[in-house]
Amino acid sequence: MDFAPSQEQDMLRDGARRYLADDFAARRRGDQPTAWQGYADLGWLALLAPEDAGGLGGDIEDVLILAEEMGRALSLQPYVASAILAIGLVDLVASGQQRLDLLAAMTSGERRLAPALYEPGRRYSIEPETRAAASGAGYRLSGAKSLIAGGPGADALLVPARLDDGSIGLFLVPMDVAMDDAAVAASHYATIDDGGASDVGFERLELGPDALLGIATLDAIDDVLDEARLALCADALGALERAVAITADYLKTRTQFGQPLANFQALQHSIVEIHIDADSIRSSLYNAIAAFHRGVRDDRRRAVSSCWVKTFDAAKGIAGMAVHLHGGIGMTTEYPVGHALRRVMVSERRFGDVEYHLARYMELAG
């Protein structure tokens, strides 16, 4: 297939790069990062949402272009969690007017949801131990969720829980209700990449009947997760390519022994090697895009896990070398290279680490 971007995709990339250019500098000045509403006004939140709910019904390539630019800008907005994974889950599970209303609110920026898929002590298993027992006309939720990306500042959580009949229900838990209830224990914290995450525990939290959005299968949830995983790979690629470019420019301007560092052959070899590694990540990303278009589930899952392993196995070496070639300045908070390293370290553990995806790939490959 042809991976050359269309004219519209070139415009999307250029517009996103211009809009996000000042994100990192603004954070260093202590300003607020780009507002979530700004993403909505540009139509970015509606890219993957279906047209019947006010979305654009875009392709996976459109989202990956945007995710790559967000990684390049080191944006802190939880775009992958709240605009890809959350919207995908609601579109998959909810139905009727509730689905339309909720998707419209999400794509317009009126509401931001945070998926709470993982649980303490269960690593990357998405099969929930959290229980939702029938209680009168509603449900009683008990369990715990951890490492909820985008949890701080979210309007509501999307919580998968096991129902009495053994099926998995997806529940909408408004944050304002949950935080005021004694049955909820929540903690919000910063991750090392300057992002935010949450841990939430439920102890017989009473929910109304409309809190249940619908029934989901593990396979369906994993399908939506694969879109988010691929977007994180693109995000990491954007961050790495920016780190490589900054490092190349630094070696051209930093002098030692009366000449630029870029004149030293050993450092030239290091730059070439990390350029090659970054290009290999893009090739793996293209392979996964092709698998998405073929539409075979196991083929797509193998390609996504292969891309994940390639991306984050190489990412730490690329970003680490970029920091190393800068010397001490590479570790300072004022300089973006160190932020790229911390970003890929956190991203690798967001939806399964390298070891998890290597095992997943081997299992699917038989």
Rank of each mutant, 00 (worst) to 15 (best):
L237F: 05
L85Y: 04
C233N: 10
R27T: 08
V177K: 14
Y189M: 09
I276A: 15
V184M: 04
D249R: 10
S135M: 05
A132N: 08
R294Y: 09
A243H: 00
E203H: 11
P152I: 00
G150A: 08
A178T: 12
A25R: 13
D59G: 12
L12N: 02
Y250S: 14
S142I: 01
G214R: 04
E69V: 06
V323T: 11
I60G: 04
F351G: 00
S75T: 11
R122H: 10
A291W: 04
L232E: 13
W44V: 09
L158R: 07
D31N: 12
V173F: 02
S75C: 15
A211P: 15
L267P: 07
R350V: 14
L113R: 07
I168E: 10
R297K: 11
G55V: 02
N263Y: 09
F24I: 00
L218C: 13
L225W: 00
P120K: 01
L89V: 05
P260Y: 01
Q265M: 11
R72L: 08
A83K: 06
S306V: 08
V296T: 10
L212C: 08
R242N: 09
V200D: 06
L358T: 14
A53I: 08
E206N: 12
L170I: 01
R229S: 13
A234Q: 02
D181N: 15
A231K: 03
V184L: 03
L64D: 06
G352F: 01
Y39P: 12
T130G: 12
R29W: 00
F292L: 01
L66Y: 02
I221H: 07
L207N: 11
L47E: 04
L285C: 06
A266M: 11
E8V: 11
G166P: 04
G208C: 05
E129N: 06
G109A: 01
Q265V: 14
A291R: 03
D62T: 14
D41Q: 13
A40Q: 03
P336R: 09
S187T: 15
E348R: 11
H269P: 03
D165G: 06
R254D: 14
G328L: 14
G166C: 05
F24E: 02
G151R: 05
A220K: 01
I84T: 02
I60V: 14
G151A: 03
A116T: 01
D223T: 14
I274N: 06
D2N: 15
L205P: 11
E68D: 07
T253P: 03
G43H: 02
R343M: 14
R297N: 09
D219N: 11
D313A: 12
T107S: 10
P152E: 06
R229N: 14
L103M: 06
R112F: 03
Q268W: 02
K145L: 00
I65H: 15
G71R: 03
L56W: 08
P5D: 08
P78A: 06
A303P: 03
K252E: 15
G151T: 01
L66P: 05
D10F: 15
A278R: 02
P336Q: 04
R13M: 13
Y335D: 15
W36E: 10
A67E: 07
E61I: 11
D181Y: 02
H293Q: 15
H324Y: 11
S146L: 10
R349K: 15
I274A: 00
V354L: 05
A86N: 09
A81C: 07
C233R: 01
V344M: 01
F312V: 10
G71C: 05
A133N: 10
R28G: 12
L341V: 07
G169K: 00
